[in-house]
Nucleic acid binder design. Structure first.
Lengths: 253, 253
DNA sequence: CGTACGCTTGACTTGGTTCAATCCTGGTGG
DNA sequence: CCACCAGGATTGAACCAAGTCAAGCGTACG
């Protein structure tokens, strides 16, 4: 297949290297890191980078495009557990027992840099900067997931969507895009699954935000007109609930 | 405070070392690991090992007792994000930006081994076995959290509690305890928060399991009489839901 | 001994799901 | 070029699982 491109030693020219695992590497270390990148794989929408149960042998950096990770529940439903954007590390679920615990599927035409674990491990051992960066990225993934546990555990549908949109905006901005206008690469079904909702609820919440003038939407194109209104929802409970909370607040001395 | 005990070089005698970060270390490496353990801290119930925002400087291994990690939501509610049992690694949320992202609070009188990061990092760099074990534990934490995202995203209250009880049983068994009889160290409130439910719902689900004879409960003491009945619920939809579906199917003609 | 707190229980309410119908829109083939 | 179709997305109506509210129980502890 022509979906494999040899790109050894291309990290120096890669515009993404200021975001990815190589971010903090200088001169010779960056060159050495480039040699760890075995190849760059080109993938189409719905292509799977790996699925649950696959043998783990490499980590990946998403170079372009986007992807989702997902688990299949015991009764066969798909639960989306995360979305990946360029520069992000994919595959750390395999480090535990050399078998992937979840699957990763591309949302659009994408390319990923493949980092075979033996080579990467050797460089992690010897490069302090890479080791710090690597641990930092893993730790960040843990924190993001914890945040998501809070989202699923405590927030209502409206708040979950607001959080999701603000998070997407932040990540787009981080990559140099607009912080208020962007295209979602995932379907409403993926968003719903990720947020622990059904697709109808997502649709209704989007409409609600549009009607109040917080956002403008056209299919997958999103324009955040008033971020504050979205942020406000995360802090304050919806109007109806407020006076019951006041009672609790008084007893918090 | 007398809550600090100097225990340098005690890993060799530690019964837990076959579970913890030192598991795969042999002879001299294990001795060296013992010197990384700066001290063992003794903590009382409700003591905080660290809270969100604290500066990160060490990782910890829970030596005895148990703990919970938690986040505080923007409107001040506590979300329990995980429980720790002996041998488990605590504090990886700090590796990202040297600040703890969540808090960890003891559930009972506990002791933790403190591993200052600079020393641990040096050993991770030089010991292949420790590095593998370390990455494995972190990866395991990621997988556990992903599993929890599925739990919160797809399972109903009954299934969440069943999953929780089976998971607790498995972890107790792993530590050499009984797989069917154990004491929970956390309150119903913590369980409810962890499972994204309210305490009343947890109470009702416990009663439901007792009434059907799956479990026996006395305060925090749990006896799993019929694990299969609990496991069954994770795969199949509850009976009550089934026949309401049937009823609807009948009334559709 | 009493009181505070963890836990349980019952009655009621509701946010989000389910079911069903319809509307887009992009791709395909005649 | 248009007709057709499939799958994503939206909308409305009805329902129910879990939350809320309120009351009461039991036990640990000062």
């Amino acid at each position: 297949m022509s979906s494999i491109t040899q790109l050894k030693g291309s990290c120096e020219q890669c515009a993404l290297s200021c975001f990815c695992l190589a971010r903090d590497l200088l001169g010779s270390e960056r060159t050495r890191f480039a040699s760890v990148v075995k190849r760059r794989r080109l993938l189409e929408p719905q292509d799977k980078l790996f699925i649950a149960g696959d043998r783990f042998y490499a980590l990946y950096i998403l170079h372009s495009g986007s992807a989702k990770s997902y688990l299949i529940s015991e009764n066969g439903e798909q639960q989306v557990t995360g979305f990946y954007m360029p520069g992000e590390l994919i595959g750390i679920d395999g480090l535990s027992d050399h078998t992937h615990a979840y699957g990763v599927e591309m949302l659009e035409t994408s390319s990923v840099c493949e980092l075979p674990m033996p080579e990467l491990d050797r460089m992690i051992a010897t490069s302090w900067a890479l080791r710090q960066r690597f641990l930092s990225l893993i730790s960040h993934a843990v924190i993001e997931e914890q945040q998501m546990l809070l989202t699923l555990g405590k927030l209502n549908a409206e708040q979950r969507l607001a959080q999701f949109l603000l998070n997407m905006a932040k990540r787009h901005a981080h990559l140099g895009g607009s912080a208020v206008e962007f295209n979602l690469s995932m379907s409403r079904y993926d968003i719903a699954s990720y947020l622990g909702l059904v697709v109808e609820t997502v649709s209704r919440m989007i409409r609600r935000f549009q009607e109040e003038g917080s956002i403008e939407v056209n299919r997958r194109w999103i324009h955040l007109i008033n971020k504050n209104m979205l942020q406000h929802r995360l802090i304050h409970v919806s109007e109806r609930k407020k006076h019951t909370q006041k009672k609790q607040a008084i007893s918090t001395d």
